[in-house]
């Protein structure tokens, strides 16, 4: 670990209609981005329970990213607004517990924004690499593991 560069694991929850399509387009356009991103396709950004975000960090992810449609473009009319409210709450909770709230990121990436997808993934991975490993996962290991 000490010699090797830190390789974070970032879990991405991407909505089916916009951000997953953008991830697809990034793939079709052969835009390389770090392999640290582990995408999970969900139907809508509002499907993502705050618990999922926290559980991902708990299971050992160094950061999570939630991708939805641009405001007003949600396939389910208002799902992305719900997601936005929840992410604010998750961030507040993380912060008040003394954890780093920047490890949860919310981004609007529409289906035609393949290059934006790759850019966001690049920038966020760089950012997390600089930050170093998340201290959240050690909470679990205090219990005995």
């Amino acid at each position: 670990m000490s010699e090797k560069e830190f390789e974070p694991v970032i879990v991405g929850f991407f909505c089916n209609w916009c951000t997953s399509a953008a991830a697809d387009l990034a793939g079709t356009s052969r835009l390389h981005y770090p392999a640290n991103i582990r995408p999970i396709r969900v139907m809508c950004s509002s499907t993502v329970d705050p618990v999922y975000l926290i559980r991902a960090l708990q299971e050992g992810a160094d950061a999570t990213i939630l991708g939805g449609c641009h405001p007003g473009d949600c396939h389910y009319i208002s799902g992305n607004y719900k997601a936005r409210r929840r992410v604010v709450i998750v961030k507040t909770v993380l912060k008040s517990l003394g954890f780093d709230e920047d490890r949860v990121l919310l981004e609007w990436i529409s289906g035609s924004e393949g290059p934006k997808f790759a850019r966001v993934m690049n920038e966020y991975t760089e950012y997390i690499k600089k930050k170093g490993p998340s201290d959240f996962k050690y909470v679990d290991s205090l219990g005995g593991e």
Binding site: A23, D24, A26, G27, T28, L31, P34, A35, R38, P39
Partner: peptide, 20 residues
């Protein structure tokens, strides 16, 4: 699993592919 668009075409590695 979208191995092609999510992994092999974007410079993904074995670790990512296996995880997915």
């Amino acid at each position: 699993v979208q191995l092609r668009e999510y992994v092999s075409r974007v410079g993904g590695d074995d670790r990512k592919a296996n995880a997915l």
